[in-house]
Design a protein around this nucleic acid. Sequence first.
DNA 1: TAAATAAAAGATGTTTTTGTCCTTTATTGC
DNA 2: GCAATAAAGGACAAAAACATCTTTTATTTA
Lengths: 145, 145
Amino acid sequence: MLFSKTCEYGIRAAVYIASQHDKDYKIGITEICEKIEAPRHFTAKILQILTREGLVSSQKGVNGGFFMDEEQMNRPLIALVEAVEGTEALSRCGLGLRACSEKEPCPLHNKYKAIRTNIASMLTGITIGDMAKKLQKGSSFLKIA
Amino acid sequence: MLFSKTCEYGIRAAVYIASQHDKDYKIGITEICEKIEAPRHFTAKILQILTREGLVSSQKGVNGGFFMDEEQMNRPLIALVEAVEGTEALSRCGLGLRACSEKEPCPLHNKYKAIRTNIASMLTGITIGDMAKKLQKGSSFLKIA
DNA sequence: TAAATAAAAGATGTTTTTGTCCTTTATTGC
DNA sequence: GCAATAAAGGACAAAAACATCTTTTATTTA
Ligand code: FES
Ligand code: FES
């Protein structure tokens, strides 16, 4: 409902990579997809985008894989969502009018606007690193056991 | 982001029909689609669903068309959304885990749960008739001029 | 330098969503 | 009863989302 599959897998993959930040090796696509229960080739494509956008780092070749530095872990979740879904997704009209506007609002505008604001602050108020920390603490999960 | 196209067109169509409730004639698909700026045949399909579910009434033949009675206008918006999107849409995990659960929550669970609750109360707290009224008052719109 | 490895890139395939078109059925007015 | 009308239903088509497979490129290590 809220996110596309692309976005869901992208978030889960990034959070898993971040959660392995303290490891001394880089994380391969096979391990990532096992741990987040996501389709391998599809997720590889998504990680290509995230890498291109600088949200995740990667290295080819032997002992290569994906990894994230402190700066990348401190990016708010909204950066990843916008990289994947585009920046307009968070400002469009809830009923699909050509634009969301105060001058010609749809009948859901007032209530929807508030919700959209809540979503934006959720995505701005949490970093990939924050989410990774929850994982490490064992207080949250990226797949159901 | 929030609704599918099917749902968006469905809501707009239903609200328009409700807004014409005081008219003494039934509303044809052609008029509806002009007024809400939606694809004609696709919207006709959606109205078939809404009619089948009893959210909207219809009559075939000469001077036929779509209409709604008071009871239908008093249905909360969530009834329409659930008829179109299914009832699970509002309870699934924001990150796409197989289930949303308190025992094995995703890293977004706490914040997302609150938003989902807001969405549910938005959809429960407004009826098709309420939305139609806004339209009649001229304080909201189903397409941009 | 050669072999092994792992991501990048690109081609291709499947499924779902979105959208159109044509035929059938029910209803009305003459 | 008959013609006109409008929704219902079903078949089909296009586009987007989701997913897989193969080849290429970069890197490491022996
Ligand atoms: S106009 Fe529809 S959400 Fe603002
Ligand atoms: S577990 Fe993800 S939203 Fe509840």
